[in-house]
Structures are given as structure tokens and as C-alpha cells.
Design a protein around this nucleic acid. Sequence first.
DNA 1: GTCTATAATCAGATAGAC
DNA 2: GTCTATCTGATTATAGAC
Lengths: 207, 207
Amino acid sequence: MDPARPRSRRARGQAGARRPVYDAASLLAVAVAEFNTRGYDATSMEDLSRAAGITKSSFYHHVSGKEDLLRAALERALDGLFAILQERHARSGRPVDRLRYIVRRQVEVLQAELPYVTLLLRVRGNTATERWALERRRSFDATIAELVREAAAAGQVRADVDSAVAARLLSGTVNSIVEWYRPGRPGAGELPEDVVRTVFEGVLPRG
Amino acid sequence: MDPARPRSRRARGQAGARRPVYDAASLLAVAVAEFNTRGYDATSMEDLSRAAGITKSSFYHHVSGKEDLLRAALERALDGLFAILQERHARSGRPVDRLRYIVRRQVEVLQAELPYVTLLLRVRGNTATERWALERRRSFDATIAELVREAAAAGQVRADVDSAVAARLLSGTVNSIVEWYRPGRPGAGELPEDVVRTVFEGVLPRG
DNA sequence: GTCTATAATCAGATAGAC
DNA sequence: GTCTATCTGATTATAGAC
């Protein structure tokens, strides 16, 4: 009927294809979405392959196993977060200004890499991969905590709350966003600035 | 050798017994600790019985199953949280004062019922029990969100951050405490007030 | 690249002896 | 109350046909 039919094979690679041609990256996205819905441990390879629309065996043709999917996802999240610390405004200036910048950027990365960061924040430490990710996370948090300490020593943040506690509350507030933020909602662009305002100035009206 | 030997059976019920005489409540505490360490789905009944020092079969003699353990734990956490909303200072006064009171009490309940609240905050919704808990949690959060809205309408909290966003950040900050707080550390008594100060006034210095 | 079939292991749960 | 032994089903992963 249609002489151009053989081309449809290539066309599947474009958007709008009935069943996408998968590569490692797109299957990772599918897997991470499932991990976040059910939890990593509760998600079987069967669940993943069904979500991709292929059989378990076909799925294994593309990926090497469940834990490698996890590692790739966690790596992407961690790389995004650590890249912030290398940016110019995160490395120079008053501690409190660097802190403000990092918090804003952290919210932005969280929005941009939501599924990957979400997965990262739910890791428990059951496997070597998870413990590796937890350690890198702890290292990131320690950098923030040190910055809060410096800002407190310079009188740039309040002294009546222990700086270690303040740092944990700050990180906790930012991280909690993954529990409810969904992209595409109105007001998403204002979120980083809203978080900075709320964290630094509190919820009470200006005084 | 010792004519009083039979008594040792009763003595095991006291503190310092080598292997405690278990009842449903003490096994629940053991189970919740394991759930929080490894995650609910990654924890097997074998893990639980080993943690209790008995076999899987003996463990089943005391409890009816894994999901019932989960339900009992989640119920305890939820009951603790909802009880706050019935207290006098949570029900009368200016919205912002009620809010402040609830936040302080929420931190206190979180400290007192740490393992149970921790488990509650990690539930994903895979089973009917988990979905039931998630719905009760959402109902609790909705009460807080409504209170923030009222406080905003009365000009008692800042208007330049959306009240729904502010409410989520507030709840997120409080809930994030389970990720790092451990009882018995110095400064634990000051935590509720530190959280109230940080959330309401921010991390910047006064004035 | 996708499939069916299956291996090997581990999970939650129970039976029945002591 | 605790044990050993076992059932049943799900899980990760692989073999080999098309």
C-alpha cells in the first residue's frame, strides 16, 4: 500500500512513535519514574519492563541489572548537585551570600532533575551503590554545614540557633520539595526565590 | 543446684533479662527499628525474627504478619500527630499563634515517637494499609495548610510567598528532622523552640 | 531486538513436633 | 513459645529461538 513503509522504522525514532526506540538513557528515565512511584526495593524488573512496554528479557538486553540503573540515576543527581559548588557565586563572596546562592541553585537543580534527586533522597544504604551515594550526599551536606558555620561566625546568620541544627533544617527544607513539587505547575519559576525568602527571613511578615 | 530456678522464668520479664519475653508491643518496636534501617520492603520477616533473636516461626507466633506490624506502627504515629490538633492551644487563639503551637508540639511528638513517625513519613502507598496512612497524613497536612491560609489572610504571615507553598515548606522542614535527629543528644530539649524560631523568623539575624 | 521458557534464589506464611 | 521443615509464589537473571 505505501511504498515508503520501510521508512517507518526510522520514523519511530522521532517523537510521536507508538513504541519508542529505547536506548540506555530513555530506559533509565522509565526506571527512575517507577522507582519513585513504588520505591526501589518494591519495584521488580518485571514492573520496569512492563512500564517500558517490552518483556523482561528485552529489558535486560539494554541494561545490565537493577542496581546499575540505580547507580546511573544516583550519579546523575549527585553530579548535578556537586556542579553547583563549582559555580563562581558558590565559591566567592560573603558566606551568607554564597549560601543564598547555593540554596537557590539547589532548588533549581532539584526542579530540573526532579526524578533523579527524588530517588537520591530516598536511598537507604542497603547495597554498596546506595552507601556510595549516601556518602557523597553526606559530603555535599557537610559543605553546606561548614558554610552555615562560617556565616554564623561572621554574624551573618542568627546565633541563637545552633549552626549545625540550622544547616540541617535548611537542607531538610530544600530536600522536602521533592515530596510535593511537580513540574509545569504555575508558579514553578518563583519557587527558588520563595524558598530563599522563607528560609532566610521566615514566614512572618517583614518587621 | 538452685532450688529457686523456676523463678528465673518470671525474672526474665524484668529488665536485664538475657532474651526478653516478647509481647506484641516490644516486637513492634524491634520491627519498626528494622523497617527504618533497611526500608519496609527490603526488610524480610527473617530479618525481623533475627533481630528479635528468635526464629521466623516463633516470630509468627506473636504477630499476624508483616503488614499488620506496619499498620500498628503507622497508627501509633498518626494518633500522636492528630492528638495535637485536639489540644486547647491548637484550637483557639490567633491563627499564627495556633500554628506556632502546633509546630512546636509536632516536633515534640516527632522526638517522642521518632521511629513510628519516621516510618510514617517514608510510606509510599504500595498496599491498602500504606494508602490509608497516606490519606490520614494528607488530612493532617491539609489542616496545617488551612491554618497557614487563615494566618496569611489575617496578615499574620508574609503575603509575598504563596500560602500553599509556605505550608508545604513548613511541614517539610519539620518532617525532615526524622532524617537526622537522634534522642539523647545534648540540645534535644531546645529543638522544638529552635525549629519554631527558624521557621517563623528565618536564619538571618534579628533586625 | 524481542520473544518464550526456565533456572536459581528468596520472600511471606504455615504445619506440626517438642 | 520455640523449633525444624516445608509450601507457594515472586524475584533477579539467563538461554536460546526467531
